[in-house]
């Protein structure tokens, strides 16, 4: 809501610079407060933000210039984690969207499988980690399987929901013009379902991060989660905090990237 009396240009300026400045200001103030509280306390459990920042720097960005200053740990922790996360999420996205759109347009298939899928979605995915562990052993395949199984359901069910919501007039128009099924799904159903599809993808992305961490905490020889587990066993609290902050930053960046894509795509499609 714009405040009455504020002239147009100043509103735009506020949106462009004032609001972000205020938000960053609050964030900095919080960090400063944290620093001021933790510095005198000197608790091993609660390191100061500066210590955490320094640890993150020495962990990941103090490498040789030949490797763009990235340390060895970037290649053993962050890269494996991210590749598993993205691969698992992408597989789940492709499978989930395709299956969801097809199921959503087929009343019969949904009648048979809907309850089954809703149940599958209700299973807390970490519970299946032991099963994937014996099936695939510790390592890449088990982690990707865990992520895919954990995150495919929200995408699938949301896509089906979106596909079902295509209005009857559009369906009948397409049938009257004898539009082939493939073309119809791609050019009518998908665009109509996109807002829901993106909602599912967003939930899945957050879940994928959770599943990545879980699978690494349980069974992995590398990755961010594994590094955090080692830190836990060695009582390196600053290292643990650094891991938490790193995961937060990654989660924020991934979500921001997805939001940017979503905005682009939805704007290109007049609803």
């Amino acid at each position: 809501m714009s405040t009455a009396g504020a002239a147009a240009p100043s509103t735009r300026l506020w949106k462009r610079f004032g609001r972000p400045a205020q938000q960053w200001g609050v964030l900095l103030a919080c960090l400063l407060g944290w620093q001021l509280v933790t510095t005198p306390v000197q608790s091993v459990f609660f390191p100061t933000p500066l210590e955490i920042g320094a640890r993150m720097w020495s962990n990941w960005f103090s490498g040789p210039a030949s490797r763009m200053f990235l340390t060895e740990a970037v290649f053993t922790d962050i890269l494996p984690s991210m590749s598993r996360l993205l691969l698992g999420w992408l597989i789940a996205a492709v499978v989930g969207v395709t299956a969801g759109l097809l199921l959503g347009r087929s009343g019969t298939a949904m009648a048979y499988c809907g309850a089954l899928f809703s149940f599958a979605r209700s299973i807390p995915p970490p519970a299946l980690v032991p099963v994937f562990l014996v099936l695939f052993g510790i390592g890449f395949r088990m982690q990707v399987a865990t992520i895919v199984f954990g995150v495919v359901w929200p995408v699938l069910l949301n896509s089906a929901d979106g596909a079902r919501a295509v209005d009857v007039t559009k369906t009948e128009t397409a049938r009257a013009f004898r539009i082939p099924r493939g073309q119809w799904i791609g050019s009518v159903v998908l665009p109509a379902a996109l807002p829901k599809v993106f909602a599912g993808l967003r939930i899945s992305l957050a879940l994928a991060l959770i599943m990545m961490v879980i699978s690494e905490l349980v069974g992995s020889t590398n990755g961010i989660g594994h590094a955090m587990q080692l830190a836990q066993f060695r009582f390196e609290y600053t290292q643990l905090w650094a891991g938490v902050v790193l995961l937060g930053v990654l989660g924020y960046a991934l979500n921001a990237a997805l939001t940017a894509v979503e905005k682009r795509v939805l704007r290109a499609l007049p609803q």
């Binding site: 938000q23 960053w24 609050v26 964030l27 919080c30 459990f45 970490p126 957050a206 991060l209 959770i210 990545m212 961490v213 879980i214 905490l217 989660g225 955090m228 587990q229 830190a231 836990q232 009582f235 609290y237 643990l240 905090w241 891991g243 938490v244 995961l247 937060g248 990654l250 989660g251 924020y252 991934l254 979500n255």
Partner: peptide, 22 residues
């Protein structure tokens, strides 16, 4: 809003080792 935006994406399970040791 900004603080919430930065706290929300932290995957809660990442806090498990930290909270357990504390």
């Amino acid at each position: 809003g900004a603080v919430v935006e930065f706290l929300r994406p932290i995957p809660s399970v990442a806090l498990i080792p930290l909270v357990v040791v504390i």
